[in-house]
Amino acid sequence: MSKPSVVFVTGNANKLKEVQKLLSNVTKYEIINKNLDLEEIQEASLEEIARKKILQAVALLPKGQRIVVEDTALGFDALNGLPGAYVKWFLKKMSLDELVKMLEPFEKKTGEAITTVAYSDENGDIKIFQGITKGKIVKHRGNLDFGWDAIFEPLAEEGNTEALTYGEMTKEFKNGLSHRSKAFKLFEQYLVDN
């Protein structure tokens, strides 16, 4: 008999690989992927964005499926959390260098990387999990293939004693301290317990 599945809704191949690795200890479910065209919700509340995203996915997929979505944000402390959930749109209009330059007038160059995971079980009950990693916004260093990874340097107290940006880290090291790994560890524990 095959295992029940959890459908991870994403069109981002890098994100899919990362999440499959993060959930590799969940053995009672098979993590499968569905690329759905979900509306990009514009909202300040990360939890509300994730909740609306999961409701869209539930409406588009067959009833009774376990579904998970995630949304990631990068907030600058000097800008009261902006660009936040809008970082994807900022990066469509500007380079990483221009994004970092936004902080030039400010002394504070810190921020938070946040992933919010929304899960709907087979009954449609929704749970929200969030992971946050604090860091510094720096000139880009390392691999430029994954969004804003190259400009985010997690703080030493987050476990980044070598002062690397996400873009300079191995996938294994990044998965040990990233905002996404923190959110998916909470989700993983929930799946194991339920």
Rank of each mutant, 00 (worst) to 15 (best):
F90H: 12
M94S: 13
M94H: 13
K92Y: 02
D71A: 02
D71R: 00
R66M: 01
V87S: 08
A73I: 04
I67C: 02
V69C: 02
D77H: 13
L79G: 03
Y86C: 01
V68Y: 03
A78I: 10
M94D: 12
L79E: 07
F76T: 07
N80L: 06
K88P: 02
T72M: 10
P83A: 13
L74I: 06
K88N: 08
I67V: 06
E70I: 02
D77N: 14
G84Q: 10
N80G: 07
A78G: 12
E70W: 01
L82H: 14
L91V: 05
Y86V: 03
A85D: 05
A73L: 07
N80P: 01
R66H: 07
D77S: 08
A85V: 06
S95T: 15
K92H: 08
V69P: 01
M94A: 15
E70S: 07
A85H: 03
V69W: 03
D77M: 10
A78C: 11
Y86N: 08
G75E: 06
M94K: 13
G81R: 08
K88H: 01
L74N: 09
V87P: 01
G75W: 10
L74S: 09
V87I: 15
P83N: 08
P83G: 08
L74A: 08
F76G: 04
G84D: 11
T72K: 04
L91A: 11
L79M: 15
I67L: 02
D71M: 00
F76K: 06
L82S: 12
T72L: 03
K93Q: 14
M94T: 12
V87K: 09
Y86W: 14
S95C: 08
G84T: 12
S95H: 04
G84N: 13
